[in-house]
Design a protein around this nucleic acid. Structure first.
Length: 167
DNA sequence: ACCCCGATCGTA
DNA sequence: ACGATCGGGGTT
C-alpha cells in the first residue's frame, strides 16, 4: 500500500475528509480502515477550534498540512485530527471511526474511544503524518459509498453537512 | 489564578 | 435522553 504524500492533505478539507474513507490509518503497530470523518474548516466555521483565532492549542491547525492535531476533550478523552490545506489556513479532519485490521476486527466507533484504544494522547500532537514514525495514512483502491450529515456533539455550524460515514 | 464548559461515553 | 466527569484553554 502506498503512503499518501503531503500534497494529499493540501487540498480542500471536505474533499480530504471524504477521500480518507476506506483508507488505512496506521499508528505504531495498529492498522485500521477509516470509516468516519468530519471536516473543520477555516476562520468562519463556528464549530472549529480555530474560529476564534490562533492560540497555543490551535497553533498546529495553522501550520503545514499532514500533521496530527490531538487535543483533550471533556477532561478525559483525546481526539485525533489531520491538519489540511495551506499554512495559515486553519483546517482539520477529525477521525471518528476505524475498523481494526488486527485479528479482533473491532470497530472503534467514536473519536474518544479510538484514541483510548490505540493509545493516542496529547504527546502525539504535532506528529508528522507523512514523514513521521508513529502515524501513516496508506492508500487503498477503495472508494466506499458514504452518507453525509451534520457534525456530532456541536451546537453551532449545524447547517454544514461535514460528517462523512461509510454506508 | 481561576472559572466554565466541551469536536464524549456509557447507561437508561 | 441524560448525567458523570475533569483537565486545561481562554480570559481575568
Amino acid at each position: 500500500m502506498k503512503k499518501y504524500s503531503r500534497s494529499f492533505f493540501n487540498q480542500p478539507t471536505v474533499q480530504v475528509a471524504q477521500e480518507l474513507l476506506g483508507q488505512v490509518l496506521a499508528f505504531q503497530d495498529h492498522r485500521g480502515i477509516i470509516t468516519e470523518t468530519e471536516a473543520y474548516c477555516g476562520f468562519d466555521d463556528p464549530a472549529s477550534h480555530a474560529a476564534r483565532g490562533e492560540t497555543p492549542r490551535t497553533k498546529i491547525m495553522f501550520g503545514k498540512p499532514g500533521y496530527a492535531y490531538v487535543y483533550l476533550i471533556y477532561g478525559m478523552y483525546h481526539c485525533l485530527n489531520f491538519v489540511t490545506e495551506k499554512p495559515g489556513y486553519p483546517a482539520t479532519v477529525l477521525i471518528r471511526g476505524i475498523q481494526l485490521l488486527n485479528g479482533s476486527k473491532k470497530h472503534l466507533d467514536g473519536p474518544g474511544k479510538l484514541c483510548r484504544e490505540l493509545g493516542i494522547t496529547k504527546e502525539h500532537n504535532g506528529s508528522d503524518i507523512v514523514n513521521g514514525c508513529d502515524f501513516q495514512v496508506l492508500e487503498t483502491q477503495d472508494k466506499p459509498s458514504f452518507i453525509q450529515t451534520p457534525r456530532i456533539g456541536i451546537k453551532v455550524g449545524l447547517d454544514k453537512f461535514w460528517r462523512f460515514k461509510v454506508s
